[in-house]
């Protein structure tokens, strides 16, 4: 009897589980389409005849193949100058972020540090309160004279409390205290211990922070908009803003033939610019995504 009941229960469950699975997988497939379609559309629109795109003929596959947009883009020097600037800012900025945040995170994970609570508060407090845009601008501009310099793009905002919290959690959980004790007995000082033992054992967290920092630098426009003045020093995202939002293309291309036609060309160039500016991150991402996930999970341990 009991066995029979269990059996019928099981069969009933199998049926309801099948419906459940169907719903889950259908929803998931829909979500994948919704996530990927806009990006797919950008790519096909960037190689299709702009007139067909404007008419709404291009929805699922490219038509009237053309590389005009990319050809035009290759002659836009501002974009390539921006590209070069962003690579420089990203490279130097990421190195600085690693150099300042990782040591702090390690030190704060050391329980024998005198004043540990105080230093932790010092580094965490700005997560919750800050001077705000205007006081920061005034200090950077009037006190440090940093407006329109390379330094302002890589140095002032390089200490990130969140990175410190995540990396500290990593050191907390993966650097056994005994290791330091043993090194100390062998006469190893703090600095040597950090550089020759801790760092080589922390490649995972260094990779996580480096990737976060690099993506952050690559994608940011705000600091450049506030602190940079000369167009030849603009990073890629600020150039992209001029193309995409301020419609610089449409305005400069306004000579000769009909405005609507030019507007369509401007749109074509916009699609191409989106592809070109996002390409490095989008192609790199599938290979490094496990590091990103690791980072979020290390951070999640602490909440």
């Amino acid at each position: 009897m009991a066995q029979q009941a269990l059996h019928s229960n099981h069969v009933k469950n199998l049926k309801s589980d099948k419906v459940f699975d169907f719903v889950i997988y259908t929803l998931a497939a829909l979500m994948v389409i919704v996530s990927l379609y806009p990006m797919y559309f950008i790519v096909i629109a960037s190689i299709s005849d702009p007139n067909l795109v404007a008419r709404g003929d291009i929805l699922f596959w490219p038509k009237g193949l053309t590389l005009d947009g990319y050809k035009h883009l290759s002659t836009m020097s501002s974009l390539w100058v921006g590209y070069g600037n962003t690579i420089a800012y990203t490279f130097v900025g990421t190195l600085i972020m690693l150099a300042v945040n990782i040591p702090v995170a390690y030190v704060l994970s050391r329980r024998d540090l005198v004043g540990r609570g105080l230093f932790t508060l010092f580094f965490i407090f700005p997560m919750f309160f800050g001077g705000g845009l205007i006081p920061t601008f005034i200090i950077l501009n009037n006190t440090f004279n940093m407006l329109d310099t390379f330094t302002v793009m890589v140095l002032p905002f390089s200490v990130i409390s969140y990175y410190i919290v995540v990396a500290r959690t990593f050191f907390d959980t993966s650097m056994p205290k005994e290791l330091w004790d043993a090194a100390q007995i062998d006469g190893c000082g703090n600095l040597r211990y950090f550089f020759t033992i801790v760092l080589p054992l922390s490649k995972a967290i260094i990779a996580v922070i480096a990737l976060w920092a690099a993506v952050g630098h690559w994608n940011s426009y705000f600091n450049a908009m506030i602190y940079m003045r000369s167009p030849e020093k603009f990073p890629l995202q600020l150039v992209m803003r001029n193309i995409l939002i301020n419609n610089e293309m449409a305005a400069t291309a306004m000579t000769g033939s009909a405005a609507a036609e030019l507007n369509r060309k401007a749109n074509l160039i916009k699609y191409c610019a989106i592809v070109v500016s996002s390409l490095p991150i989008m192609t790199m991402y599938p290979f490094v995504q496990k590091y990103f996930n690791q980072g979020v999970m290390i951070g999640a341990l602490k909440g």
């Binding site: 040591p103 001077g131 006081p135 002032p156 200490v159």
Partner: peptide
């Protein structure tokens, strides 16, 4: 090891708080 970060934070984060 903490010194660089402390200097940066004081100059560019805590000074604006005073600001």
């Amino acid at each position: 090891l903490m010194l660089p970060a402390i200097i940066i934070f004081i100059c560019f984060t805590y000074m604006p708080m005073y600001g």
